[in-house]
């Protein structure tokens, strides 16, 4: 079947090729056995196998949403509180576990300080369609990392839906490397006074990979804050559509929103489209966005090559340096090493 997913919150001309992405001839798996290869580590969290059936503000369209609601083979509702607690979910795809449709809900109770690590990896061609819902209650701190290391011929659909209550501080780090199609829909409902959301992500596209990234933040509470920083690199015939929306809703006085996207084009055939949107119905706010695209900086390349590195090695170093400030946010050393290794391998 053909599906049209990842709609922007506001449409623009169809000729601009950015309102959504159409994926043709996709088989969406149904009636799956339970996905067994998941490693769950939780520190006194309550885990239930049933999630709230709340509506999504955006998401990846009706077909994929219903697929999750009706066909999920991994459902987890994780409720937690406490200081310096950790949760880890590691999905490893293998011959018996090639399709993952997961529906995950994190409820972080007030005054908690939680670190969450979510990683999926495989060398197998696989299918993933999932929803992560995160409710950050008053005064919580959440540091969450989502790492996609799927095979480059896989389908990956991520939907993330956050609600940030008063004084909450939610930091996301997203690493998006895998997938023939990797489609990410991220929405933050920043409703509580003084709530802060910080989203840093890196993507790396090679071969004919297509990344369709749609980040949406609605600032509703007073003195709320969103900071989006996206760093990417595209090689070969890879293509990326980045859609980032900061929406200042009426009443979000003193809110701030910053959005920055930088795309390194590592080959003449790589394609980058960006739509950084600012929507505003409140005057007492500060909103900024910037995007930039281009080749690797010639001066940096020359400098590194003058130290004896080949051009390819120099490019890898520059990409790693760009990505490193975001990778550093991940608390797990082994995973950090693995990400750096992946950068090297993918850019070879």
């Amino acid at each position: 079947m053909d599906i049209k997913v990842n709609e922007t919150p506001v449409r623009t001309s169809r000729n601009f090729r950015i309102n959504n992405i159409t994926i043709n001839n996709i088989d969406i798996p149904k009636k799956l056995n339970e996905f067994k290869n998941v490693e769950i580590f939780e520190d006194k969290a309550l885990i239930e196998k049933d999630v709230s059936q709340l509506n999504l503000a955006y998401g990846n369209g009706e077909i994929l949403k219903e697929n999750v609601q009706n066909e999920a083979n991994n459902v987890l509702k994780i409720t937690t509180n406490g200081i310096n607690k950790q949760i880890r979910l590691i999905y490893t795809f293998d011959k018996e576990n090639l399709n993952l449709i997961n529906n995950i809900e994190f409820i972080i109770n007030h005054d908690s300080n939680i670190t969450i690590l979510y990683k999926s990896n495989t060398n197998e061609v696989c299918f993933h369609n999932g929803i992560i819902r995160l409710i950050a209650k008053d005064n919580v701190k959440v540091n969450i990392s989502i790492i996609n290391m799927l095979n480059n011929n896989s389908y990956n659909f991520d939907t993330i839906d956050n609600k940030l209550e008063s004084n909450s501080n939610v930091k996301y780090t997203i690493v998006d490397f895998g997938g023939k199609y990797s489609v990410s829909n991220y929405y933050s409902n920043i409703v509580g006074k003084n709530a802060k959301n910080d989203l840093r992500s890196i993507y790396l596209g090679i071969d004919s990979q297509i990344k369709d990234i749609n980040y949406i933040a609605e600032l509703k509470g007073e003195n709320t804050d969103i900071n989006i920083d996206v760093q990417g690199a595209l090689k070969d015939k890879a293509r990326k559509n980045f859609k980032g929306t900061i929406d200042f809703k009426k009443g979000c006085k003193k809110a701030k929103g910053d959005e920055n996207e930088f795309c390194m084009l590592l080959s003449p055939e790589a394609k980058s489209i960006a739509l950084p949107m600012l929507l505003c119905t409140e005057d007492d706010v500060e909103g900024n966005h910037s995007t930039a695209s281009g080749k690797v900086d010639e001066k940096s390349l020359f400098y590194i090559m003058s130290r004896g590195f080949s051009e390819n090695e120099a490019i890898k170093l520059i990409v790693r340096a760009r990505f490193n400030k975001i990778i550093e946010r991940i608390k797990d050393e082994k995973i950090k090493e693995n990400i750096l290794l992946q950068i090297d391998e993918r850019l070879n």
Partner: peptide, 25 residues
């Protein structure tokens, strides 16, 4: 109301492209 909806479509690597926008009172 004030909205900024710019599409930047870059199809080659040898370019220098930058876009910045500000909104506020």
């Amino acid at each position: 109301r004030s909205d900024t909806i710019p599409v930047n479509d870059i199809e080659t690597d040898e370019v220098e492209f930058s876009h910045e926008a500000k909104i506020g009172k």
